[in-house]
Nucleic acid binder design. Structure first.
Lengths: 142, 142
DNA sequence: CGCGATTAGTTTGCGCACGATTGAATCGTG
DNA sequence: CACGATTCAATCGTGCGCAAACTAATCGCG
């Protein structure tokens, strides 16, 4: 076996395939809610803290406005969020949940557990892996 | 702290951000070679085993032909690969490296080590994390 | 041989990601 | 107050990723 050059030896490839497998695993669970995976993540952030500006969402999700603006417009078109210019600072767009956006939270409440089951990990393994990934991300950014 | 519902508690989000951070970390290293990250992965597979059909590349990379066809056309436009219909079976397209495609292998030889350094992981940690991710991927697919 | 089923790859359409640019609003310094 | 610098979101262009529809070639069964 070649040492470290084959594609299956590469950490990056394992990460890339795992991430896509995860996104795909979410799909059948999110489809009844009419959400994509990035849209679901965005709503998670808003359910945690409603009324954030676009840049704050971007900081939280590590996405820039070029990605978020069209995504938020699609959520708005579905009636889940409102986008409005701040009165204090007209540059800022504040994103807030509608009634429907809040209501969706209940319908999505089962999602984390459903996904946890799909991973087949116990809580300890999950936390360990998650923290390793966070550390790796920090390293790659630094 | 909410238990398991916040975005930073989710394994999926850690995976998603780590994967994007990895892709981004590759960018400055691959940019001098004129490659994107998925293009680099595709070449890795071809350097291992030249002359594969599109579907075999897809099996290896877990990508379908709708993704690979345009990617391969871009590699072909750069003069790195040739795409040709098999004589035995006209449905099949075989992808083979050009001289330039092989030559690029030398110029890319430093990439894995450069990335390993960026991760700041020792080899043992890398292998452990990689195998956990492979196991997770298998679970999510199963 | 003939013809329906299957297979391989392409095309189409949509939704991310992200670098780069733009335009408008605000800030800061003189 | 003025005006250049900065900030915020939107826009543009490119390249994935993938579902679905399509096309052409091959297979298989009568």
């Amino acid at each position: 076996m070649a040492k470290g050059q084959g594609i299956d030896d590469q950490l990056c490839f394992a990460l890339y395939t795992a991430s896509r497998a995860m996104t795909r695993a979410y799909q059948p669970i999110l489809e009844p809610l009419g959400l994509t995976y990035p849209q679901y993540l965005t709503l998670l952030v808003l359910w945690e803290d409603d009324g954030q500006r676009v840049s704050a969402l971007g900081d939280r999700l590590h996405l820039d406005s070029a990605t978020l603006t069209p995504l938020l417009k699609r959520l708005e078109a579905q009636g889940l969020v409102r986008r409005s210019r701040s009165a204090q600072d007209e540059r800022v767009v504040e994103v807030s949940l509608t009634e429907a956006g809040w209501a969706l939270r209940e319908r999505a409440a089962h999602v984390p557990l459903a996904m946890l089951c799909q991973t087949g990990l116990d809580l300890g393994e999950l936390v360990a892996l998650r923290e390793q990934l966070k550390a790796l991300t920090a390293r790659l950014r630094g």
